[in-house]
Design a protein around this nucleic acid. Structure first.
Lengths: 186, 186
DNA sequence: CGGGTTTCGTATCGATCACTATGAATAATT
DNA sequence: AATTATTCATAGTGATCGATACGAAACCCG
């Protein structure tokens, strides 16, 4: 998972995976069928172990503004862990791909879309609760938030520190059409 | 350039380039030395022909808020041209790379950093002119703006329309600590 | 019209890709 | 304990990568 996260799907060779896992080629293929299946397995593992900050932020019983604040600040932390590759696997895995790897690129896009949809769902809930203006497009705002997160992912890859990302998140939060009730600096 | 833009550096094979340019292998190597030099040539060509909207926006004799507004709306248009690959080559070219292509990944990161620095320079000018608060970190705000643009680049790649990107840009602009003098909707 | 030079496309180079067949070594069974 | 069965690592498969060596065609000049 870390190799795919660091180098992306196509640029990660079986030789690298073999050495990292300490396995022989037949062991790998017995366990994971092929490279594509192995990557998908790594993807679901990433989803289960590394995106907890997002589901927690979006499901916490707090105001919508506070939820988004937790989401972005959580991303700042998650994308810049020293012991992990920078950014988000959903972005680093494959933005551009060869024609042969289109299926993988599509899979990653699906994950990114799902994240955006989850944000939109939380915003819709907030709108229903009166946290957000009636005339707001939740899809549009979700696209903005998802974009900021993906942008943070690239910044993290380019060497931004946790503090850089936290400041970036704070700036991004100022665009939200919510009250200031829960946006105190911590 | 379009092939690298669409598929990234490593996923674009010489065979694809050969077919697209209608050249034989020796012709390519006579003209461009090797794949890496060819990519760098495509990069500078991209820089010269596709990033005009940014230099225009940042050098226009307008307020800082208006300059950033033109920058983001220009990106919305440039990243979603139907006749061009989606997004920005500086992002699509190589976010994650194999160890052998690290030099290319570094080169692209340098371009991204340069964009961010250009934004920061414009913000510093705006701060000196009184367009921005005294206590503002221009580097921090530049990082935010660059992140939004890179996020838009990913959104474009994931199928966002011009309208989607324009709406995203408008949302992002709300985070700027500037007056509303030039932020009228057009 | 012919000889020498240069250009240029084909066919192929070694390296590496994802992936697998085969033989040795171990384990299980009688 | 002998023999069968099964595991498993080494070695190598065809395909494709980026990059070139070589032979043919064309061109220039005498």
């Amino acid at each position: 998972m870390h190799l795919f996260w660091e180098h992306g799907y196509e640029a990660t060779s079986l030789a690298m995976l073999r050495e990292a896992m300490g396995l022989t080629p037949p062991q790998i293929y017995n366990a994971f069928t092929d490279k594509e299946t192995l990557f998908r397995k790594a993807l679901t593992h990433y989803h289960e172990t590394e995106t907890g900050f997002a589901v927690e932020a979006l499901s916490a019983p707090v105001s919508t503004g506070e939820a988004i604040r937790r989401l972005l600040l959580g991303a700042a932390k998650a994308y810049s862990r020293p012991s992990k590759p920078g950014g988000c696997l959903f972005v680093s895995g494959a933005l551009a791909a060869s024609p042969q790897a289109q299926a993988i690129a599509d899979e990653l896009r699906t994950y990114r879309k799902a994240s955006e949809t989850a944000i939109a769902a939380r915003l819709a809930k907030g709108k229903a609760a009166g946290d957000l203006p009636e005339n707001l497009s939740v899809e549009g705002l979700a696209k903005y938030i998802a974009s900021v997160m993906n942008g943070m992912s690239i910044q993290a890859r380019d060497g931004a520190s946790v503090e850089d990302l936290r400041a970036l998140a704070q700036t991004a939060l100022a665009a939200l059409p919510v009250g200031r009730q829960n946006q105190a600096y911590d």
